[in-house]
Design a protein around this nucleic acid. Sequence first.
DNA 1: GTTTAGATTTAGTTATGACTAATTTCTAAG
DNA 2: CTTAGAAATTAGTCATAACTAAATCTAAAC
Lengths: 222, 222
Amino acid sequence: MEKPRLSESQEDYLKEIFKLRETNKSVSMQDLARKLDVRPPSVTGMIKKLCAMDLVEHEPYKGVQLTETGEKIALEVLRHHRLLELYLARHLNYSWDEIHEEAERLEHVISEKFEAAIADLMDHPTHDPHGDPIPTADLVIPDSPAMKPLSTIKGSKAIVIGRVMTQDKDILSLLSRLELVPGQQIELIKSEAAGIRVRVGDNQYLVPQTIARLIWCEDPST
Amino acid sequence: MEKPRLSESQEDYLKEIFKLRETNKSVSMQDLARKLDVRPPSVTGMIKKLCAMDLVEHEPYKGVQLTETGEKIALEVLRHHRLLELYLARHLNYSWDEIHEEAERLEHVISEKFEAAIADLMDHPTHDPHGDPIPTADLVIPDSPAMKPLSTIKGSKAIVIGRVMTQDKDILSLLSRLELVPGQQIELIKSEAAGIRVRVGDNQYLVPQTIARLIWCEDPST
DNA sequence: GTTTAGATTTAGTTATGACTAATTTCTAAG
DNA sequence: CTTAGAAATTAGTCATAACTAAATCTAAAC
């Protein structure tokens, strides 16, 4: 089973299937169409091709899933993406909300040499600036601490933000100004109907429910 | 006249026309086909499109040349390429013969932000590792010292290599092992039929004519 | 069990940017 | 002048990856 050369589109399909699989039990054509911003018939067509290449399996009307080879490729793209995000932030002074877009384009064109060079330079990091795990060079996803959404945490006082589940520039820009970023320790003050009141350093904010769902914190119950 | 969005192919055509223009008085369809590694009819087709976009002008059977807008774009791509080459060499430990290929792919996808970031980081360099001038941020080609090919230099003793006119990996790898790189001071010992005998540090080599033509040195007669 | 709304697929189109084969046009040599 | 050979163009094809419109399937509601 040798490694076929894929188009950027094809890599994006594989990556997206992988990411959706982490959340959903099954990945529908529609899910993919939405995420990839194309129409359903385009998805049908591309999935057919990826099937023929043995990169995905497709039970019609039930869902799509990656083969072993397909997953390997998805993980490689994901590794590129997340290493790049961290690299852009650390070494080229990109702000939190700018890294995703740039990495999205670069991930498809950097060589293995480039990947290895930035990984070395950064001492083989395990997580990117959003707290997402970076697959290792041999394509294993490193463990992350147990986490749950800020919106579901009760009563605990001091907790640490582990991951922020969005790539929306406006939200990221806002959160970074409020210092609600991975690694940050925060204190949970009170759950209200509108959201959750937290303390960050000397400041207090009311984090709306919608946003609290995106902020995953290390689970204090473990 | 606003900036249209171009495909990577189109950018490559413009870049290649620009580079050929530096050498040739006129750029033929064939020249382009050779450099871009496509067939002549493909060139005809693409040039027609670029004409329609007002990026090139084409006198049939006489040659192609860039419009002002076309040249701007070519210079931007060239700036990306050369900044990237230097960046890869300086910051990611790429060797001289590896930088071109990687830059060739990256040049089309990096943003203005990326360009500015690496330019800043490197203190706005004027020349890349091959000695090629890097267009400035406002797209002007910086001056280089007067140079001529090593193959044409007579009698002078101590001279400095300014530019190496090839992207051939094997030649670059060889030259870098011999320390025949831009900035290097060398001493010209004797012209022989087969080539030119030079001293580099403690070593002496016979540089074959073919290769001596690629090594441009600062002109000692100026 | 039908029905029907939503998901999916099929059929057919478009744009890009290559290609080959065949033809036309230019130029320079005789 | 004429004409051979090189350069360029035209005409028509292919692959990729999107699209719309229309048909079809599935599963849940009744």
